[in-house]
Design a protein around this nucleic acid. Sequence first.
RNA 1: GUGGUUGUAGCUCAGUCGGUUAGAGCACCAGAUUGUGAUUCUGGGGGUCGUGGGUUCGAGCCCCAUCUUCCACCCCA
Length: 495
Amino acid sequence: MSKEKPSIPKGTRDFGPAVVVKRNYIFSVIKRTFQKFGYLPLETPAMEQLSVLTGKYGEEGDQLMFKILNNGLHEKKEAEKEKLQEHWNKLLSQPYSTPAITERALRYDLTVPFARFVVMHRNDITFPFKRYQIQPVWRADRPQKGRYREFYQCDADVVGTNSLLCEAEIVQMIDEVLTTLGLTDFTIKINHRGILAGMAESIGAKGKEGEICVAIDKLDKVGQAGVRKELLEKGYLDSRIDQLFEILKVSGTFDEKLLSLANKIKSPIGEIDDTFELNEQKITINDLNNPDNITDWKHKKAITDLKGVETYLKGFKFNHFERLEFDPTLARGLSYYTGCIFEVKVNNVSMGSISGGGRYDNLTGMFGLPGVSGVGFSFGVDRIYDVLEELQLFPESSQVGTRVLLVQFDKESELYALPLLQALRDAGISAELYPEATKLKKQMNYADQKKIPFVILIGSEEMASGKLKLRNMQSGEQQDMTLPEIITQLLTPEA
RNA sequence: GUGGUUGUAGCUCAGUCGGUUAGAGCACCAGAUUGUGAUUCUGGGGGUCGUGGGUUCGAGCCCCAUCUUCCACCCCA
């Protein structure tokens, strides 16, 4: 007999019945919306080949990946042991994984496996291909609030089209899901990798938008002073940082911000590229609507993409523009995004982003299928759950369960109850019979604990008369009724 | 990966300066009540004080290690 206390790995959780019911409610809202927009379900294995995943999420991602130890390692033949030892030493000496030790890993997100799927089945699927996927992913991150090592993502992605219609629909889906869940105060932030690249170039840091992004993404957290400090440490000059803040100083409506930024990043201030002609032409709102009028400038696409998304949304008569914010400081790290990027924040709750996504032009290219652009986003269910719990937004109706419990007294009443139980179930009422003829107190208590709203008592009197005793557990009222009457009553929605 | 934090009954937590047999509320079980839950009353069970070492005559309390929780970084859903 082991005295060992059972436990589960760090950052993982069990979900009890009450929690699963609520989680399923969230899943169902998300699924319904995805399907409404024409996305179909897909599932992929929990583990992928390590080679499929490595290098797709940057250095950090590679480190946070759960790698799977090859099986049979302890059974290797004597002759191979020395070689194996070598590999182990290599593995222990530095962050390096050898195929002799590990060649599989748990999936880190759903987008890369999806790209892998698309490439593998390129001949079987019709493009544009729209799929949604709701499965757990694993990251060896250190657990924190809203941060787990095993968590669910709900992805919707479409590959095989460049159309900004997809981006616009993503905004709509986010808005619809969160609104349906009862959330009202949230912000869908949108930005574009081209904006970030343009800002980097404008301060003479072409190609280094990575470290600039990491810094400015914290603007709302540590303020200008904090960002300045970080950039100074990275070797940027004060004057350059001033330029950066000047560019970021945008305000007003979506269009006003876009226009302001368009003029600020149209021409690099720093390290002038000889092949690039300084464009003094002032961009106007008209130019945004007819971008062909503008002579080409770097990162024009970022501006016209964002404008295009807005135009589609206006066409949809999207009426929640106050929730859509163009935020040039939004800098999502995932290394594969190339176009628009999204992030969603619920306001006035202590929780990071609950959704994010973006367009990626070269994910399938990494698997040998170039020229297939894709865009997608993901909901973090675990975080949405915490937010709904904090705001007490789970509806009572989302709590499903048994509606009526049959209480038995002895073998005779148990047998008598069986056809009744079946009839109730046939009528679509979730019903259960207490499986033992124990004391009434115990059976009633069971109904109470499970919050079963009705109990049917079947004793000798009831069997003799055919009138069953239906007890309302909330009010305590009971009345004698025939089975058809009971079924009618239970099917009537509560007033 | 860095810095901090937490762990005592199923749950939430007390536990004084290191000193006898570690407590409370809730929950659970039984009875009051052999055809009635939630309310009331009475009684009961339940602890290797996260784990492993150390200091001490003596450790829930002090020291070290380790695991876990939560938080801030890095990064991210």
